[in-house]
Design a protein around this nucleic acid. Sequence first.
DNA 1: CGAAAAATATACTAATGGGTATACTTTTTG
DNA 2: CAAAAAGTATACCCATTAGTATATTTTTCG
Lengths: 197, 197
Amino acid sequence: MARGDKIRERISAAAFRLFRQKGFLRSGVDEIAAASGVTKRTLYAHFGSKDELLAQVMATQAKLALDVFRTDFAPNAGSAREIVATLFRDLGRWASTPRWAGPGYSRLAAELADLPGHPARAIARRHKSELETLLAERLASAGVGDSHMLARQIWLLMEGAMMTMLIHGDPAYIDAAADAALVLLAGRAEGTETNPG
Amino acid sequence: MARGDKIRERISAAAFRLFRQKGFLRSGVDEIAAASGVTKRTLYAHFGSKDELLAQVMATQAKLALDVFRTDFAPNAGSAREIVATLFRDLGRWASTPRWAGPGYSRLAAELADLPGHPARAIARRHKSELETLLAERLASAGVGDSHMLARQIWLLMEGAMMTMLIHGDPAYIDAAADAALVLLAGRAEGTETNPG
DNA sequence: CGAAAAATATACTAATGGGTATACTTTTTG
DNA sequence: CAAAAAGTATACCCATTAGTATATTTTTCG
């Protein structure tokens, strides 16, 4: 690996840390440069602008997150129930870390809500879709019918749990979300999509 | 109503509009003053700082939103099913307005994620709790058992739907959330969906 | 080695931010 | 009416921001 790539990585990692911790707008370029042990001039040699840096950071992290999810998450989970339970257990652990600053992608999307054309938005959108699809595949291979709809609804619960956790800081909301997800799963699995009249 | 109060209201309304549209950090004080047709000096005579302005705006809007919810939302909804369906239908309409910029409170909370002590955070937290409680009461009076848990889970779905709608802009996610909410309701309501009155 | 490429250090810019100061005009009110 | 209260207009302060310029040093590599 060339030296330049290593520096790129250092900058990208530091930027990601700061963006997630303090948000995009409140993270200064000088700050990012200092945190990566690099001169601002060097930073601008690698990334043309702060927005471009954000876009590249998001793309990099999306790839990393997807790989982690693909390989590490519930690697040999059997039942759909296990998959769902693991998903929310991991979420709870993650969201309980000391200075947890919420879901990175959703936070960034919220921060850029008035800039629908920003490249980072498209990346966040694609990343979310990929995760949703991945979960759907896991559920399908665990024998769940209508796995797409269920995966989508579970992601809705995940998003809601993260935002609510960010607002309230109360892990009970994650438990409630997990419970709801399992109810939904049970509903689908037993073939009773709609309430019996 | 005194003149001063009218001006306060104008400032507060303009600030709310801008905060929701562009976020807190990207809304300048000069901009807010101009939008409310008021001098910056006057703005500072009414609100000591930008943060204080945010806090007061959030408090005001929370009260307004709660009143609207209390009186206008599903005023004579009978069954719990109707309540839930109406809730998501209204959400879908709201989120489909032209320049919809996401859920105000959650967005602000996300923006201030690294400042847990900010007064606006506490207001957002309380507001969310009040809404959740209100929904629980509605559900309870419609004969739903364990209405607290159900209300909480429905709010999780609402939050998730809003954030996802903000990211994807696809109303299908709201339909998916509505469907999930109804499945949860069917699961809880062990056969009793009675209509009071 | 020796030269090009890449990084550093430092200083700069132009704009923007929140917040304040001063002098003047309008509105309210005793 | 008269004076205080409230608002306007305008200019200013100081810190911070993204991004650039220049000159110097370090690293890479033929």
